Amino acid sequence: MQSPQQPYRLNIKRGKKPASAPGISSFLQQSDKLSPLLPTVKRNISLQKECESFLPPIFGHCEVLNLHEDQLVLSAPNAAIASKLKQQLPKLLAHLQHRGWQINAIRIKVQVKKTVEKQQAVKQALLTPSALNAFKTLEDSLETTPQNEALKAALARMLSRNGVK
C-alpha cells in the first residue's frame, strides 16, 4: 500500500514492441515526399469544382489534370466532348480569371479511359417440382438418336443441378 505523501504510480512492465507492418513504415518515411503534393491536390480539386459549377453538362465527364505556368490542362474522355468543351473555353477562361485564378491559357487532352465490362451473372431459374418432373419425363421419353443427343445432355445437366437424378 502506498503512503499518502507519494502520488499514485502505475507499474507497467515493459515488453517487446508491437510488430509493425512493413508498408506503414515505408509510407511514413515517404510522407516528406507526399506532403508537398497536398496544396496541388487541393488546388486541382478547387479548380475541378469551379469548372463543374460553370459548365455542369459538359464538365461532368472532364477532369482537371494540371495547372502549370498559368496554363490549365483539362482531360476529356473523347473527341466529341473535347470539341464541345473547346467551344466553351473562352467563356471558361474569362470566368476563371474573374474568380481570381491566374490562368492565361487552357489546353485539352483527350484521354480515353478503359472501361471494364462487368461479367454478366448466369441466371438460374427456380423450377417447381412439377416442372422438374416434366423435364425428367421429357428426358426419359426422348429417343436416343444423334439429333436428340445434345438435348438429352442439356436436360440431364439441368436436372442434376436441381437435384433430380
Score class of each variant (00 low, 15 high):
E117V: 05
A154Y: 05
P146G: 07
I108N: 11
G60Q: 15
R157W: 01
L92M: 11
S3I: 04
C62A: 08
P146W: 08
C62D: 06
P4N: 12
E69L: 06
H95M: 06
K165S: 11
N162H: 06
Q119R: 07
Q102P: 03
Y8S: 08
K91Y: 06
K42M: 00
S31D: 04
P129H: 06
L55V: 03
P129I: 07
S130M: 12
F59Y: 12
L74W: 02
E69C: 02
S25F: 02
K17I: 00
P56G: 05
L159P: 00
N66I: 01
L85D: 12
N104W: 00
D32W: 06
L138V: 13
R9L: 12
P39K: 08
G23E: 11
K49H: 13
N133A: 15
S130E: 15
L93V: 01
V112S: 10
K84S: 05
G15K: 13
H68M: 06
L47I: 05
K42H: 00
S141F: 12
V122I: 10
C62W: 08
K165Y: 04
L96M: 14
T128D: 12
E69A: 09
V112L: 13
A150V: 15
S83F: 05
K16A: 02
C62K: 07
Q119A: 10
S26C: 04
R43K: 08
S20I: 01
I12Y: 05
P90L: 03
R99K: 15
P18G: 00
A19R: 00
T115D: 04
S83L: 09
